[in-house]
């Protein structure tokens, strides 16, 4: 029994890791731009397909493919910012709808380039850690380590650098930030790059574990929305805590009951938070 619990815990930590990366990126984009990026799941998918293309088809080393996925999806983010969100800056609903259009374009591009069938990727990293009968593959360990590293880096960036600071100011009050001489164009571009690249790197790192399809973004975006609502929309630390909470609840329910029940429990969790504390576990302030 302890074996199963330990194993499920490790599985939950793994799920929490990549979901945190996705949710934090989504929150960052929402915080700085006020736009719900519906294409976020497809950015994750684009990261996974970067690995399919570079690692599976062109035989580049796995980590090079992951780095390329991070950069490529980050650039997709900049493209979205420049072509969609900037012209629609005063129109958050328009930004949301435009992001749905972008989602369909990315999906179609993936179908045209790679087909609708699952892409199987040979495991790039062999081996596993055994711990009291529970198993953690190196591949999963890599995802966990990368998530911790990247999220810590982001935290330090936001706290310690001038740009990071400006980003927090923008997230709290965009106009007031502009009145301090902070360039909204520059900050939104950087926020979009970081937010998108976090989704991309999550997709790239987990690609060998999930068998990518062009439609893999759907389930991820629903989960990410639940997480950012539970954590408090616009709250970065809240997104991480909520991702961990959701991953544990979902993984344990899946293991001990089944996956459909786990999905229902996840939604009930969100409803409970919305009823008891509509601003989310961490959200307190009202947005201007």
């Amino acid at each position: 029994m302890t074996e199963i619990i330990l194993q499920t815990t490790l599985n939950a930590v793994y799920a929490a890791s990549y979901m945190s990366l996705i949710a934090v990126g989504l929150v960052l984009i929402f915080g700085v731009m006020g736009v719900i990026n519906f294409a976020h799941g497809e950015l994750y998918m684009a990261g996974a397909y970067t690995v399919v293309a570079l690692y599976s088809h062109l035989n580049f080393p796995f980590l090079i493919a992951v780095a390329a996925g991070l950069a490529f999806v980050g650039l997709l983010g900049i493209l979205m910012e420049y072509s969609l969100f900037r012209p629609l800056r005063d129109n958050p609903l328009g930004g949301l709808i435009a992001s749905i259009g972008f989602l369909l374009m990315l999906q179609t591009a993936a179908v045209l380039g790679f087909g609708v069938r699952m892409a199987h990727i040979k495991p790039p990293i062999q081996g596993k850690i055994e711990l009291l009968g529970a198993v953690l593959t190196y591949q999963r360990f890599l995802v966990i380590a990368a998530a911790i590293l990247l999220l810590t880096g982001l935290y330090l960036f936001l706290r310690k650098t001038k740009i990071g600071w400006a980003m927090r100011a923008c997230a709290q009050d965009r106009e007031a930030a502009a009145l301090q001489g902070i360039s909204l164009n520059q900050i939104t571009r950087i926020a979009m790059f970081i937010g998108a690249s976090l989704a991309g790197v999550a997709g790239a790192l987990t690609a060998p574990l999930v068998s990518p399809t062009p439609y893999m973004g759907h389930s991820v975006i629903v989960t990410a929305f639940i997480i950012i609502i539970v954590g408090g929309i616009g709250h970065l630390e809240g997104a991480v805590v909520a991702a961990v909470l959701y991953a544990f609840v979902h993984t344990f329910v899946t293991t001990f009951y089944d996956g459909v029940v786990a999905d229902i429990v996840g939604l009930v969790l969100m409803l409970l938070v919305l009823v008891i504390k509509p601003t989310g576990l961490f959200g307190a302030r009202e947005r201007a």
Binding site: Q172, D173, A176, A178, G181, I182, S183, R285, A288
Partner: peptide, 28 residues
């Protein structure tokens, strides 16, 4: 000019309703 460039020219504004950053410290 966009707002940041106006600030760069030397015009600062204290906006209506103060608009301080609630989740930054006073010094920040």
């Amino acid at each position: 000019l966009p707002p940041d460039k106006v600030v760069a020219r030397g015009i600062a504004q204290v906006p209506e309703g103060r608009r301080i950053f609630p989740d930054l410290t006073v010094e920040e």
